[in-house]
Design a protein around this nucleic acid. Sequence first.
DNA 1: CTGTTAGCGCATTCAG
DNA 2: CTGAATGCGCTAACAG
Lengths: 336, 336
Amino acid sequence: MVTLEDVARHAGVSLATASRVLNGSTRQVGASLRARVEQAAQQLGYRTNVAAQTLARGASNVVGLVVHDLTDPYFAALADGAMRVAEDQGLMVMVATTHRDPEREIAYVATLNAQRVRAVLLAGSRIANPGVTRRLREELDRYRATGGRIACVGQDLLGADTVAPGNAEGAAELARALAGLGHRRFAVLAGPPWLITAQDRVSGFTGALAELGLPAPQLVHGTFDRDGGYGAAAEVTDATCVFAVNDVMAVGALASFRDRGIRVPEDVSVAGFDDIATLRDLVPSLTTVRLPLSDMGARALELALDPSEEAREPRVERVSGEVVLRGSTRGLTPEG
Amino acid sequence: MVTLEDVARHAGVSLATASRVLNGSTRQVGASLRARVEQAAQQLGYRTNVAAQTLARGASNVVGLVVHDLTDPYFAALADGAMRVAEDQGLMVMVATTHRDPEREIAYVATLNAQRVRAVLLAGSRIANPGVTRRLREELDRYRATGGRIACVGQDLLGADTVAPGNAEGAAELARALAGLGHRRFAVLAGPPWLITAQDRVSGFTGALAELGLPAPQLVHGTFDRDGGYGAAAEVTDATCVFAVNDVMAVGALASFRDRGIRVPEDVSVAGFDDIATLRDLVPSLTTVRLPLSDMGARALELALDPSEEAREPRVERVSGEVVLRGSTRGLTPEG
DNA sequence: CTGTTAGCGCATTCAG
DNA sequence: CTGAATGCGCTAACAG
């Protein structure tokens, strides 16, 4: 294992000089010494020991990213955006997946704190559980207390900088668009009752329907994934339009209807939420609410890294979804 | 920033004792002291400084994962598998995305080396470029020289433990299955000529066709993604069956045919490769070659971490794909 | 079982 | 501009 000291000796300079040329010091070093050091490092195959550097500097070059599930394209897109800005800033990204276990989320925050990462990004819906949320906040506070920076993508519940998707607003706008198509009887594949993202989308949707004077939709709960959509769709009775609270669930719903010989959109319309890129070529193409996922991930990391955050209120940036009407929903004549 | 020393003082014990109870030492500590230390750590909100720990131990708890693109479900699935075993082993995962830039791949290996990660996993196709491959190998050798472990998912070209998908074999079997359906005139959406994964799938496919005495397929190159499939499909002339060398390209091909009013599978059959889970609900459902992506990622990390690798040949584990015939391909009567 | 001590590799004062 | 010395927080002998 070749160390800085080896390089310095090989180049015939002091440790300090070697350090200055090899690592981003602002200090200047004479051209000839600089060249000697660089050559020595090259010859010896020197690689900075980041652990030592982190210890000496008291700050690391790593950020942490906590997501539920990387195979969910929603999180993959967020992660991609965050990694883009990390690369731009010369930071490495440590990724942790919780698989929707809030205990693991808390544990990972502690671990990332131990790693002394520069910032941690919490992506994904909060859950409606005060005890868990409190303990997560405590862990985050501990991290923050030592200079850690935090940003979230999702609900603004953690007292940290947040990129907050307009779930309720987007769902409301979707409801209005669907109602504009002539639909009156709706069902909502609502996901788990405790997932706040799901809650918000449901309430935004039902709220808009109520404002329009339309009957309340049928609510069917289930998991937040493809199978949740598939299962919930089977329980829908008497609706001309089904809103799945995310695209992946909508895909499950589509499959469920297909398996039962129910045509979309002829027999029933289906809409989702998120506008997952990988799913854009679905047939019928999915009506949904587009969220700029990658940019949201990028923006969240920017917020977390932005140093102008001394002793002030957490910043909350709302990003609104855009309704995209596609082939999975159709217009109804007044007769239905 | 509370340190181990603070905890020790607070608990009235020595640094060493505090270290022994708080971090996974095999050494025993008396119950009463142990309790005092744990309580002190709890009260003070102590978090291990992993950088210091890594420096002192000379070994980190982090593994590196280098993938092309996390938003590609292929890599997301590999990453998911790798992260599963990382979690089991109490390791954190540092993820780097190259976006198919080989220079970045080399640079990230150097960075991960500097981080002194325990192992690095290189996922994704090698490219047919001797210069780049040589420099990558040099960087890997440097890493290995200091005890770093390496595993790859893909081609066995780096002299490291490798999980090698049977690209050629899978494609060959697919070709035979498709020929068995009665197809004679094929086209292959071949991806980039320099991508070895793509090459292998193409050559396996065409080789099997030749063995069957069938005419050589039309080859159309393009990018390895959805748009590459979309564009290449437009150039297909006179084939009853189109093989896209991965599922995501096949989705593009499906879209291309649909946009031009060409029905699948009535007018043309389409097959892919990988069996991406997110795409299983496509209509028509995609005939493909199933690869156990998540398990492959997991296995690769296991190989990298398995210490029984002293001074012996790199292990290469071949994993074979399974042909899955679905709705996007149909049988032909002898008349076509 | 517990405490003392000597580094791990590097950044950074502080002199020169 | 350059070098010598100190310490970052922790682990691992070693001694008791």
